[in-house]
Design a protein around this nucleic acid. Structure first.
Lengths: 136, 136
DNA sequence: GCCATTAGTCTCTTTTTGAGACCATGTCTA
DNA sequence: TAGACATGGTCTCAAAAAGAGACTAATGGC
């Protein structure tokens, strides 16, 4: 649904883009890029509730591959959001739990999840509108 | 930095996982999966400030390919977060701007960005600690 | 005439992800 | 006692996604 107007966008500073905002080497990106993976948020949401073991998470998120589960957990651990605790049972069991840093991140993050839950309808409607105009 | 304890995690409901939380077909995922791409947040952040034209965005985010810029903008538009307006100049110019729905999403989202900015240091420190223990 | 600009698309290559086998060791079942 | 199952991964190979860069058409400036 691309609206068409007659007036061209007469914005002055077309060549001053770099002046007002630096998108490269931005500390925010360094953090965001990690938690913006497909699975990170989902695992954070789970671990925010209570600690989980590897197999529990695998069963909880049925469509994640073991490979990505391992990798995402490691990434989250590396960035300090979750903790990995090994219990020397036979076979060994591993428990993942959220750190204080992780909880502190999850606070604003959960607001976004809440928004997603609240506005899912609007988003679906927007998609329908877009796809419909596509055919017309 | 995996701590090792002696007590195995005696959690009862190992087989009741599916009972307490449904991760598949979750409406939240449907929304989150789209805005959790590598570029979505970045473009939202830009467009939250003011409308931008295609080329402006490309210059603003130097390391995005035209292909991904086009695709991400289309996805954001489809979900109703941004608006695409074509001006019939020669050559035609296209302006992208944030919709009310986009602004409403950006409100909680910006809190996460703020967190990232505030806690970048802690995350970098956690990473350093992890990588260090890796060698030991 | 020649080059740059507009917003993209198309193709090709590289990276990321997914699917599934495999590991050692121990318990449970038949 | 043999076989299956559970643990938390890793390894390999195929599929999907992303990045790099050429190409488009019409126009303005030099």
């Amino acid at each position: 649904m691309a609206s068409v107007a007659k007036r061209p966008p007469t914005r002055d500073g077309q060549l001053r883009d770099t002046g007002d905002w630096d998108a490269g080497n931005c500390p925010v990106r360094d953090v965001i890029d990690r938690i913006s993976g497909k699975w990170s948020t989902l695992l954070m949401e789970a671990l925010a509730k209570r600690p989980y073991r590897f197999g529990e998470l695998r069963r909880l998120v049925p469509d994640i591959s073991q490979r990505m589960l391992t990798q995402t957990l490691r990434d989250l651990q590396r960035d300090g959001y979750i903790d990995r605790q090994v219990f020397p049972t036979k076979p060994p069991s591993v428990e993942y739990s959220m750190t204080p840093l992780g909880r502190s991140l999850f606070e604003p993050l959960s607001k976004v999840l809440q928004w997603a839950s609240d506005n899912h309808g609007s988003v679906k409607a927007a998609r329908a509108r877009y796809d419909e105009g596509d055919l017309a």
